[in-house]
């Protein structure tokens, strides 16, 4: 069976499918980056630390600030950019039922 990655086949595939698949890969990569950043940083700076060593930044433990709040802000900004600018504005087609009832 033809796979959509082979160049001659790509033109036969539905552009909504190809766009959505490309966007899905990027979303999975963004999720993986968030996982590594958040859990990775927290593992190093938040686990097994004596309370005297915990810094406080903007009123919260430093590891929460750098390991959760900052990536959360970054992920939100990325999501806003991704939603508003990156996702292709594809035509998703008409509803089959509507077509049937109108036509």
């Amino acid at each position: 069976m033809a796979e959509p990655d082979s160049p001659p086949e790509a033109s036969r595939f539905d552009p909504v499918f190809l766009n959505a698949r490309r966007e899905a890969w990027l979303i999975l990569m963004a999720w993986a980056v968030c996982l590594i950043w958040t859990v990775g940083y927290s593992a190093v700076a938040g686990y097994g630390v004596a309370y005297e060593e915990v810094s406080i930044i903007l009123g919260m433990p430093g590891w929460v600030f750098w390991g959760v709040l900052v990536p959360w802000i970054a992920a939100t900004l990325f999501s806003v950019w991704f939603g508003l600018s990156y996702i292709a504005d594809d035509d998703l087609g008409a509803d089959e039922d509507d077509e049937a009832s109108h036509g």
């Binding site: 979303i27 968030c34 958040t38 859990v39 390991g67 959760v68 999501s79 991704f82």
Partner: peptide, 11 residues
């Protein structure tokens, strides 16, 4: 940390 993946959940 427990709830952190909600940062990326909407996406």
């Amino acid at each position: 940390l427990w709830i952190a993946s909600y940062m990326i959940f909407p996406l």
